[in-house]
């Protein structure tokens, strides 16, 4: 079931176009990563979806009553408020019944790992703690849709892993749309990729689809020495690139055929081979290709 559908979403600031003709849909219970270089329009898009900005044109269709949670890139809290006070206020303003607001707030703070500091003022919080509290305020009312702007980019690797794990545990009850420029994170949790550049959607699809689209049929063979690699490269009829003590072959064949042919060839002359692998493009390579190519 589609929970959110965006059609021809456009945001202009005078002459400048921040987001142009953006169209996509989110399926219930999925995680979607919005990636793209700085200034691509990711924050503007999320702000419009969260209702903070009015779109210049286009439409956003979704069931508002099912609730939305939003985590800005740099959440700012009232420094004189304690985490629990803030959460309780946030919960009530989001429509949580006042009977349940306190218990719901405590539960959510426990969930994000802030249970022990719930009575500390947020002014004393570190960046990582603020990010966790930001996540907590976004999910305290159990929204169906969660919008996160760079939820982990300000964190160290451990913190990133922890937050990503928290986000994963919210599925499949919550549909998540998050922007990131850390592609490793995007690869960890994504059913759909949206790739924005200069305000436009330049690539989208599931991680597998996108990877396939950009996959180059290359097979990499590693040898013990560069000399052995060079010798092998001289013997084959396929286009071969030397890379130190490795050879990369570009073979245009369907499915496993290329690999079978390579293995057959290696069976004859396999001097010094220590590894053979089918290369797949990483998201980072795709990112560079998309960003550079268009």
């Amino acid at each position: 079931m589609t929970i959110l559908e965006v059609r021809n979403l456009t945001k202009r600031y005078g002459e400048q176009v921040a987001v142009k003709d953006l169209s996509f849909a989110l399926e219930e219970g999925t995680a979607t990563a919005l990636i793209g270089p700085n200034g691509a329009g990711k924050t503007t898009t999320l702000s419009m979806l969260a209702g903070l900005l009015r779109a210049t044109s286009g439409s956003i269709n979704w069931h508002r009553e099912s609730g939305v949670g939003f985590l800005p890139q740099h959440p700012h809290f009232f420094p004189w408020m304690t985490a629990l006070e803030f959460m309780e206020m946030a919960a009530k303003l989001s429509g949580v019944h006042s009977k349940n607001a306190l218990s719901q707030s405590k539960k959510t703070l426990e969930f994000v790992g802030l249970g022990s500091v719930q009575n500390k003022k947020t002014g004393t919080f570190s960046g990582g703690m603020k990010q966790r509290l930001g996540l907590a305020q976004a999910i305290v009312h159990e929204p169906k849709l969660l919008l996160l702007d760079e939820p982990v980019s300000a964190l160290d690797p451990t913190g990133r892993r922890e937050i990503m794990d928290l986000l994963k545990s919210l599925q499949p009850h919550t549909t998540v749309l998050y922007s990131t420029h850390i592609l490793n994170d995007a690869e960890q949790m994504t059913d759909q990729l949206l790739f924005m550049q200069h305000g436009k959607l330049v690539e989208h699809g599931s991680l597998g689809e996108v990877k396939e689209r950009y996959a180059e049929p290359r097979i990499r063979i590693r040898f013990q020495t560069a000399r052995q690699a060079a010798a092998f490269a001289g013997q084959v009829s396929w286009p071969a690139d030397l890379d130190g003590s490795a050879v990369e072959l570009a073979i245009e064949e369907e499915g496993d055929t290329a690999m079978k042919k390579v293995l057959a060839k290696l069976a004859d002359t396999s001097e010094g081979v220590i590894g053979v692998e089918q290369k797949t493009a990483t998201l980072e390579e795709i990112f560079i290709k998309v960003a550079g190519g268009k």
Binding site: A50, G51, L52, V68, F70, P72, H74, P75, H76, F77, F78, A90, L93, S94, G95, G134, Q137
Partner: peptide, 13 residues
């Protein structure tokens, strides 16, 4: 200006 309003405005305020 400080951004503290954002987390209020994003709710059905």
């Amino acid at each position: 200006k400080s951004g503290t309003a954002t987390l209020l405005y994003v709710r059905p305020l």
